[in-house]
């Protein structure tokens, strides 16, 4: 277990800058999710922490130790990949034993350690199986057991759930959260799936174009996005232009009280659940309706032509073409800081 500090890390590949001056701290025992679209630099960041990329500029520290130039095999960092990358020339148990074996742990102890971990992950009956015969979920657990067998200071997970079916994914997410908390290990969790990051992580770093746009708890990132990109990437959002003055937000076709003392031209982030159908200042025409079970996702058009996404209870959902009146819960809107 260790604290990870990235200090002004920049990684360039020729002309392209994959990671641009990233500074991040992952506290001891914390699970930090790194999310972002593909190509945003999240995997490069993870590989830099693992030691497979040397930063062009900046430093990587584990606690007070500068590990920027330490080769991966001497960092004691556990890695789990999306492809699991199990060694199919070894049995499941031999896979888990591999790390301790490289560390020079005695045969007896490493067998014991491997069996303990397989038991912990509830796959001890697979110990002598060939990894190629396992299902995706089972391989994922073996990959995790193998990474944990070296008793890593830091665990790096690179899209470990991608490729699993939705139900198994939900199940494994809950299971893994409990496990990681019990193990009390520092985790860097890279994923493109922001929902997964919200479930799994204590804090989330949202990356775009090699830059960290915002770091914060899942609710902070969702409710108080730092900028347009974060508001758009995390969850569904309506971004409406408004003019703020005298404690009011003027949308042109409607006005509401302003949550903060903002002034001037602003962008207001409104989550779909912040709109409520009923008496309110907004009038809109429903254009589309998607039934999703627990709620109905409804697209409606405002008088200025802007489309908004609403989340409405199925019993109250209007049909396309209907005129509706919308109220806005101003406690749940967020005014983006002026850029």
């Amino acid at each position: 277990m260790a604290e990870i500090t990235l200090d002004g890390v920049t990684k360039r590949f020729g002309e392209t800058t994959a990671v641009d001056d990233v500074s991040l701290t992952v506290a001891d025992g914390e699970i930090l999710g790194v999310v972002g679209p593909s190509g945003c630099g999240k995997t490069t960041t993870l590989r830099t922490v693992a030691g497979f990329e040397t930063p062009t500029e900046g430093a990587v520290c584990f606690d007070d130790e500068d590990v920027t130039r330490v080769p991966p095999e001497r960092r004691n960092v556990g890695l789990v990949f999306q492809s699991y990358a199990l060694f199919d020339n070894m049995t499941v148990r031999e896979n888990v034993e591999f790390g301790p074996k490289m560390q020079g742990v005695s045969k007896r102890e490493r067998v014991e350690r491997a069996m303990d971990l397989l038991e912990l992950l509830d796959i001890d009956e697979l110990a002598d199986r060939d990894p190629t015969t396992l299902s995706g979920g089972q391989q994922q657990r073996v990959g995790l057991a193998r990474a944990l067998a070296i008793e890593p200071r830091i665990l790096l997970l690179d899209e470990p759930m991608t490729g699993l079916d939705a139900q198994l994914k939900t199940h494994l997410q809950q299971e893994m959260v409990g496990l990681l908390e019990d193990l009390d290990v520092t985790v860097l969790y890279v994923t493109h799936d922001q929902t997964e990051a919200m479930v799994m992580c204590d804090r989330i770093a949202v990356m775009n174009d090699g830059v960290v746009e915002q770091v914060g708890t899942p609710d902070a990132v969702y409710e108080r996005p730092a900028n347009d990109f974060v508001a758009d990437f995390v969850g569904t959002s309506n971004r409406l232009a408004a003019t703020a003055s005298d404690g009011r937000l003027d949308f042109g076709h409607a006005t509401t009280p302003a949550p903060n003392g903002d002034e001037g031209e602003v962008t207001v982030v409104v989550r779909p659940e912040a709109f409520e159908v009923g008496a309110g200042p907004f009038s809109a025409t429903v254009s589309e309706r998607f039934y999703l079970g627990e709620h109905v996702q409804t697209i409606a058009e405002l008088p200025d032509g802007e489309s908004v996404t609403l989340r409405i209870d199925p019993t109250e959902a209007p049909s396309p073409g209907e005129q509706v009146s919308l109220a806005l819960d101003t406690d749940r809107v967020h005014v983006l800081p002026q850029s």
Partner: peptide, 13 residues
Amino acid sequence: RQLEESARSLGAS
């Protein structure tokens, strides 16, 4: 690459 990196991270030269 992932096989190689897994092994390296597990302490293999």
